[in-house]
Design a protein around this nucleic acid. Structure first.
Lengths: 151, 151
DNA sequence: CTCAAATTAAATGTAAACAATTTATTAGAA
DNA sequence: TTCTAATAAATTGTTTACATTTAATTTGAG
């Protein structure tokens, strides 16, 4: 059966809306630290993995240099990261956390964690939705380009 | 139990990624018509409901005039909609479909529909994910602002 | 070794999204 | 009736996102 065309019945719209509500949620949660959601996930990766090149960082978060370069410049301006050319390969730019970022890690983790707990999702629900969404995402990624040819 | 802080284990990130893949999917599907996803959902609402004010349109799609005004100007420039002040209330701007938009409706429905079918989601899966995502979205919307206070 | 191909980041241009402010119009209380 | 409130859209400014192009550096084939 063909999928519905009514806006309210479309999965893409649910995900689009959920993304926006999540963005708003994180905007609120990160307000005390003057961080956006995108900036936060970049910091998350650096907290997890240490210094990375723009390229590697981009692979982790799914963003290219067109998005990351200005974002990282803002993070640098606000004292969260440093950016410097790699000695081994001058094409690379190494992004590292500042002391401020390292020190704030636990505070931010704790605050964001408590906000997430307040959503009121059980662990089972949380994991259920997450795996469902990931299945959709994988299916979407695998749709071949030939699908879109118009006859 | 506290929700995970590892990026890969976070629901927000799954939804963020799924949103981006959906955007790319619709960019491809709508390429023949030179429409973006946001423009498409605006047309969907107008196809469903006929002429609407910017305000009403915004309530349907969850966008404000700051986003809609330039988007609608582009749709007008490309010949999809007309924009004119309401006679009854000069504050309102009525957005209506052009003949071109009305004529293209079925072609666009058919093409997008066939692309969606190609994703390979069963109806059960589709509805399952959709209702899960909507539950999360509702829970997120209901998180009170006091949650975000930092002590 | 040399130079074309590949790689990396930055730059450019377009579109979205949203908060906050501004402008114009309308409605409603005094 | 008047003039303040509220409403609607547009404007301004910031950030994100991505495609495409550009610039610098490195690699590797010959």
């Amino acid at each position: 059966m063909t999928k519905p065309i009514l806006l309210d019945e479309q999965l893409c719209f649910s995900i689009y809306q959920a993304h926006k509500v999540f963005n708003h949620f994180y905007a609120k949660a990160l307000e005390p630290f003057h961080l956006t959601y995108s900036q936060y996930i970049v910091l998350l990766v650096l907290w997890e993995q240490g210094s990375l090149s723009v390229k590697s960082l981009g692979q982790e978060v799914g963003l290219d240099s067109g998005t990351l370069t200005p974002l990282l410049k803002r993070l640098e301006k606000d004292g969260w990261v440093t950016r410097q050319r790699s000695k081994e390969d001058e094409r690379r730019l190494d992004v590292s956390l500042t002391d401020k970022a390292k020190q704030q890690k636990d505070v931010i983790y704790a605050h964001v964690g408590s906000c997430i707990d307040a959503i009121g999702l059980s662990n089972d629900q949380y994991n259920q939705v997450k795996s469902d969404v990931e299945r959709v995402q994988k299916l979407l990624s695998n749709v071949p380009d030939t699908t879109f040819a118009k006859n």
